[in-house]
């Protein structure tokens, strides 16, 4: 900022406040590859012992790779659904003359703010009734649906920034509205698609409550439920193991975030839940 004010007192103050957070994340990494004596804070040896869960399943738990695959399927599928439904519905709300357009728009806006987690009791019972309880398909569908209003909202915002003239030109060139959307408009919002896709993927990857409630079974377990189960199990307290599984779980998130920070910032800043 302006050079008339000294920056270092602020940097120092914020460093102190941020220290616990940094400390927690540094220890998260360090503890997975070292051993520390009880009552000490400094590790005494380097070890890969905590990572054996990668090749020998923890007793009574499903294979970690199976769980990781479930998580990948869950996150990918739900983000694919969010992406395809939002990119079509967002376009309609931004550009097309559909009946009840205002009603749809108001609906999406309300749903965007509406705390969908309150519906979980009803959704749980519905999934039980229709037989989708404890299936990946069910929880994928629910996750996609709950993320969709945000997706539509974001996509509408991005479509709104595409100049009308581009579409008008396309129509004058003889293209149908569908072709205009597919070939002329969609390419303009590619950054938005990337951002929303990533966001939905990360949101699925991190999701805990939905799979915990709707698909807790070992067969369909995802990493969040797996790790929560591990931590909640009082008979097997092994902080280093928890952290190693945690790192295994969080690394993809951090990498994606680092690579696509600029794209994601748009969405994180624009009114996500939390």
């Amino acid at each position: 900022m302006t050079s008339n004010f000294r920056a270092w007192p602020v940097v120092l103050a914020l460093s102190i406040v941020s220290a616990p957070l940094v400390l927690m994340y540094v220890y998260l990494l360090v503890d997975t590859v070292t051993s520390t004596a009880p009552g000490s804070l400094i590790p005494y040896e380097f070890t890969l012992r905590h990572w054996t869960f990668l090749w020998t399943p923890v007793p009574g738990r499903p294979d970690i790779w199976r769980v990781a695959l479930n998580t990948l399927v869950f996150a990918t599928a739900s983000s694919a659904i969010v992406l395809s439904l939002s990119s079509t519905a967002g376009y309609v709300l931004s550009r097309l003359n559909v009946p009840f357009r205002r009603f749809f728009l108001a609906g999406v806006m309300v749903l965007h703010a509406f705390p969908s987690v309150t519906l979980i009791v009803a959704i749980f019972l519905v999934l039980q009734m229709v037989g989708l309880y404890n299936s990946l398909a069910g929880v994928i569908l629910v996750k996609a649906a709950l993320d969709m209003p945000l997706g539509i909202w974001i996509m509408k915002g991005f479509y709104d920034t595409v100049p009308w003239e581009i579409e008008m030109a396309g129509i004058q060139d003889g293209a149908s509205r569908f072709t205009v959307w597919r070939r002329l408009v969609l390419p303009q919002v590619r950054p938005a698609l990337l951002a929303l896709g990533l966001f939905a993927f990360l949101s699925g990857w991190s999701e805990f409550i939905l799979p915990q409630v709707l698909a807790p079974d070992n067969r369909v377990q995802v990493l969040s439920v797996y790790l929560a189960g591990l931590i909640a199990d009082d008979n097997n307290f092994d902080m280093a193991l928890f952290k190693s599984v945690g790192v295994f779980y969080v690394v993809p998130v951090i990498l994606l975030f680092l690579f696509f920070q600029k794209h994601l910032m748009n969405i994180y800043g624009g009114g996500t839940k939390g």
Partner: peptide, 18 residues
């Protein structure tokens, strides 16, 4: 027509799950 076609899937999901 296109609008209704494109918005229907989203509308169905909203109705079913909200």
């Amino acid at each position: 027509k296109l609008g209704l076609l494109l918005i229907t899937p989203a509308a169905i999901v909203v109705v079913m799950l909200f």
